[in-house]
Design a protein around this nucleic acid. Structure first.
Lengths: 150, 150
DNA sequence: GGAATTCGTTGGGCTGCCCAACGATATGCG
DNA sequence: CGCATATCGTTGGGCAGCCCAACGAATTCC
């Protein structure tokens, strides 16, 4: 699929891994820029969303869901807690665990972030028609799917 | 395109930016693993390829081509030079510049890396047929294209 | 009841990306 | 020619993402 006759750098830049990396970087940038409006980083947003989705949940559980290192989870939650978006309270049934819960403000921020992230994605795929977007998602899903259970 | 009724985390994970990010991470991993066989990191490989492609070239020029920070370029070239894959010699016509040149060994490594990177990409897109790969590349190219001149 | 495991936390590290400053050198313009 | 301006390589920060190791406290397994 990639011509072997290309000069070295052009060859690398013609590889799917390179192109998908560039697109991912662009997407990251757009979403990050959008979420900055609410003062959230990408991962903080994901953690906040996971907390909202899985109700009161232990840190380690969040880390497993999002594939985030425990060390980093501490910092992420410290920040979210500092912003008043989540709370950490000891789990009475297992005193090792911190039950992480979304606050009312956290839910509000999350709702606004959903709109922002959606808008950023429309900007990312703006040049594609609806049918093409669906096609792209289908192909990417196939590529990613076999690799890991999401 | 993305249903607004989804729970928070599932909503995020249904966004194109998230999916393309996951695929990119998978691609990075596969290529990085492949290049490790030659002792090269992703960026080192790119710098080596750019050096080979643009002959004797100044560091700043390499940095511009690959959008790499000058500080990081120093470290990258230090490593490549330490491995004996490139050389730095003062440019007689402009004594500020370091003329970076690939060595014979650098070219050999580069040739082997091309095969490795190609193989990693075949593994990445293995589940897709040739026509689907081309389709994916076309779509990604359209998405990335308008954002930056490669 | 004692061993093994999990939890949260703290401690490292490496890479990628961004910005600021510096001496040395080159270039532009008067 | 002389001086301001810019570029080059280098060094110095910082921050986020990703990975691994260790620790006390608490829990579970047998």
């Amino acid at each position: 699929m990639t011509q072997p006759g290309l000069p070295p750098l052009q060859h690398i830049q013609s590889l799917p891994s390179w192109l998908v990396g560039r697109v991912a970087a662009k997407g990251r940038g757009l979403v990050a820029e959008a979420l900055a409006e609410e003062g959230l980083k990408l991962m903080q947003h994901a953690v906040l969303a996971a907390t909202a989705e899985y109700g009161p949940v232990a840190q380690a559980e969040l880390g497993r869901r999002l594939e985030v290192d425990p060390k980093d989870m501490v910092m992420l939650l410290n920040h979210l807690q500092g912003m008043g978006l989540v709370t950490r309270s000891p789990d009475p049934s297992d005193r090792r665990k911190n039950a992480v819960t979304v606050t009312a403000e956290g839910l509000e921020v999350l709702a606004r972030c959903a709109v922002l992230a959606e808008r950023a994605n429309e900007e990312l795929l703006g040049v594609l028609g609806e049918e093409e977007k669906a096609q792209l998602m289908r192909l990417l899903g196939r590529v990613y799917g076999p690799g890991a259970a999401g």
